[in-house]
Simulated assay, not measured.
Amino acid sequence: MALKVGDKLPVFKAKDADGNDFDSLKFVGKKPLVIYFYPKDNTPGCTAEACGFRDRFEDFKDLGAEIIGISSDSVVSHQKFAKQYKLPFILLSDTDKKITNLFGVPSGLFGLLPGRVTYVVDKNGIIKLIFNSSLMATKHISKALEVIKELAK
């Protein structure tokens, strides 16, 4: 079942691009989150999306928000992707798709590709925005930033 605006962020754990353990509980209660699911490292849309978040990273950071990208790529793939494009935010490996399923991220492009969905979560762990951007890889970045600005007031 897909998460909805107003739902509490589910607890999840994964490996980040450095192979470290990530636990969502370490962030809830501390800072707002922008969690974005994307299909695949090093594809045109996903690279544009990641670089878009990279280019606006300081804006999010200045507002106290953390950006987290999640795909089914391996830790090694994420390492290379983050290094190649100088991505300063967290990338999580969801090879078994447990997190994707936990959030209820729908498949994109007629079920052929993993979905591209962004969630903005307030510091208390409540989902404030869900943006399904399957065919618009970068459109949601400014929308997420708007919501983070509102939360920062």
Rank of each mutant, 00 (worst) to 15 (best):
F81A: 10
S134P: 01
L9Q: 07
K80D: 05
L87I: 09
K80F: 08
D16V: 00
H140E: 11
F22D: 01
D62F: 00
N101K: 15
V5E: 10
D73I: 03
K128C: 03
K4C: 04
G45D: 14
F27K: 08
F89L: 12
F60H: 05
K8E: 12
L135Q: 13
A137L: 11
D55G: 00
S93F: 10
S24Y: 13
K153P: 01
L112T: 14
E58H: 07
L109M: 14
F57Y: 15
K153S: 05
V5Y: 04
L129N: 09
H140D: 08
K31S: 13
V105D: 06
N42Q: 02
D73G: 09
G111W: 04
L87K: 03
L112V: 14
S142G: 03
V76F: 14
K83R: 12
V147W: 06
Y119M: 05
S24C: 10
A48S: 04
A65S: 14
S72M: 10
D18P: 00
G19W: 03
P32W: 15
D59G: 09
K61L: 02
D59F: 00
D7H: 11
K153D: 09
K123L: 10
S142M: 06
F37T: 09
I141C: 04
V121P: 08
K128G: 05
D16H: 01
T43H: 09
S74W: 10
K13H: 11
T47R: 06
P39S: 06
I141N: 07
L102S: 14
D41Y: 14
V76K: 14
M1Y: 10
K26R: 09
D55N: 14
S72A: 15
L109N: 15
M136Q: 07
Y119L: 04
A2V: 13
G19C: 07
D96Q: 08
P44K: 01
L113V: 09
S133P: 03
K26W: 09
M1G: 10
D21K: 07
M136G: 04
N101G: 01
S133K: 04
P32N: 09
E146L: 02
E66Y: 09
G69D: 12
L151G: 04
V75A: 13
I126F: 11
D122P: 05
K83I: 00
T95L: 11
Y119G: 00
C51P: 03
A144L: 11
A14K: 06
I35W: 07
G108K: 07
Y119Q: 00
V28Q: 06
F89G: 04
L112D: 03
V76D: 12
E150V: 02
D94G: 01
F103D: 00
L129V: 08
P10N: 12
S134N: 15
F27A: 09
K61F: 14
I68K: 11
F89N: 06
K80Y: 05
D94Y: 03
D94C: 14
I127S: 04
K61D: 15
L3G: 02
K13W: 03
V105T: 05
R116N: 13
P114E: 13
L151P: 01
L129S: 13
P114F: 07
L3W: 11
C46K: 01
D18N: 15
D7C: 10
R116P: 11
V105H: 01
G125Y: 06
L91D: 09
L102M: 05
F81D: 08
I68C: 02
L151T: 03
